[in-house]
């Protein structure tokens, strides 16, 4: 995830302006900001509100509603472990407990060195290869504790 830039208000405004012609532009804008900076910075809220002529509260309300949008920068890597039914039937609880213990953080937290953000996800559509995971947007199947270890090590090597 090395392409992520530090937040920059001018750059943010440019991305917002690029999308303002869309009908229902708010979600595309938030995705664009998160793609660019890794999260939606507080300072972007009034820029969006002004562009779309809606209140800041409305923008805040949308950001807080959706699980995807982050208010703080994530770790250098994001590891998402599925905990929906199909993955439960193949022991995802064991994988999750193992990863939490190994990284010393819980789901939803980032390791103190900023290397990995651990998140849950409810279904990646990889249910024939449960338990499933996604590391920096790439899918992984049959993620036993051993496979999870390999994923964490591969993320570590890439920095």
């Amino acid at each position: 995830m090395s392409q992520i830039q530090a937040f920059d208000a001018d750059r943010a405004l440019a991305r917002i302006q690029e999308l303002k012609h869309l009908d229902g532009a708010l979600l595309p804008m938030l995705h664009a900001l998160q793609d660019e900076f890794g999260y939606v910075d507080e300072a972007a809220v009034p820029l969006i509100a002004d562009t779309l002529n809606i209140s800041k509260a409305e923008v805040e309300g949308v950001i807080s509603f959706y699980h995807d949008f982050r208010r703080l920068p994530p770790g250098r890597h994001v590891l998402r472990l599925c905990r929906a039914e199909s993955c439960q039937s193949m022991g995802c609880d064991k994988t999750i407990a193992h990863v939490e213990q190994r990284l010393g953080v819980k789901l939803g937290e980032t390791t103190p060195d900023g290397a990995i953000t651990l998140r849950d996800v409810f279904c990646l559509g990889l249910c024939a290869h449960s338990p499933a995971a996604m590391l920096d947007g790439e899918p992984h199947g049959r993620v036993t504790p051993q496979v999870a270890d390999m994923l964490i090590e591969s993320a570590g090597r890439r920095q």
Binding site: L22, D23, G24, A25, L26, L27, P28, L30, H31, L52, E58, G61, V62, F65, Y66, H67, D68, F69, V121, F122
Partner: peptide, 27 residues
Amino acid sequence: EARLGAGAYICGEETALLESLEGRRGQ
């Protein structure tokens, strides 16, 4: 046009999906 959701299961419900497409909370 293809649009991306944002991790809300409820947006699979058609009216919540429409709200989301319009740029609002998926209620």
